[in-house]
């Protein structure tokens, strides 16, 4: 009776390692059932297993997987580095703007300060006259 549940349940997804063992013919009875159960449930798994069985050897297959993953990692990291660089560049412009504003403020302060200091001098000259 408990086996009847197998018909209703989708069962757990097999690991990649279990799938490789299945392709090599070394999977345990439990792993084999898990994979074949998924194959009967999912077209994705069925197509994948049927295709993987066409590889010359599991080593060749693994080699292809490694190559694809290596390229993928390179691609996704590259995009991230570009983002990081552009992020830094964006922040640099913010920094430059802040510095320019600060310099303008300082310059403004000195201009005002100098003009204020020069006014009393003119006044005293006029008084002396």
């Amino acid at each position: 009776m408990s086996e009847l549940k197998n018909i209703l349940n989708h069962g757990p997804e097999p690991s990649e390692e279990a799938l490789k063992r299945y392709l090599e013919g070394n999977a345990s009875a439990e792993e084999r059932f898990m994979i074949e159960n998924q194959m009967s449930d999912e077209d994705f798994m069925n197509d994948a297993v049927e295709g993987l069985q066409h590889f010359k050897s599991p080593l060749v297959m693994q080699d292809y997987v490694n190559k694809i993953n290596k390229d993928l990692v390179k691609h996704t990291s590259k995009r991230k580095n570009n983002k990081l660089r552009s992020h830094i560049e964006d922040q640099n412009w913010t920094l430059i703007s802040i510095i320019i504003i600060l310099l303008l403020c300082i310059l403004g302060y000195f201009v005002i300060h100098l003009s204020l200091n020069s006014k009393p001098n003119n006044h005293t000259i006029e008084q002396k006259k």
């Binding site: 990649e16 799938l19 490789k20 994705f44 798994m45 197509d47 994948a48 297993v49 049927e50 295709g51 993987l52 066409h54 590889f55 010359k56 060749v60 297959m61 292809y64 997987v65 694809i68 993953n69 993928l72």
Partner: peptide, 15 residues
């Protein structure tokens, strides 16, 4: 990766 490689292999029949 592995599953998609299998799917593409099934249809394209070339590693």
């Amino acid at each position: 990766t592995l599953l998609l490689l299998g799917v593409c292999m099934k249809y394209l029949k070339d590693e």
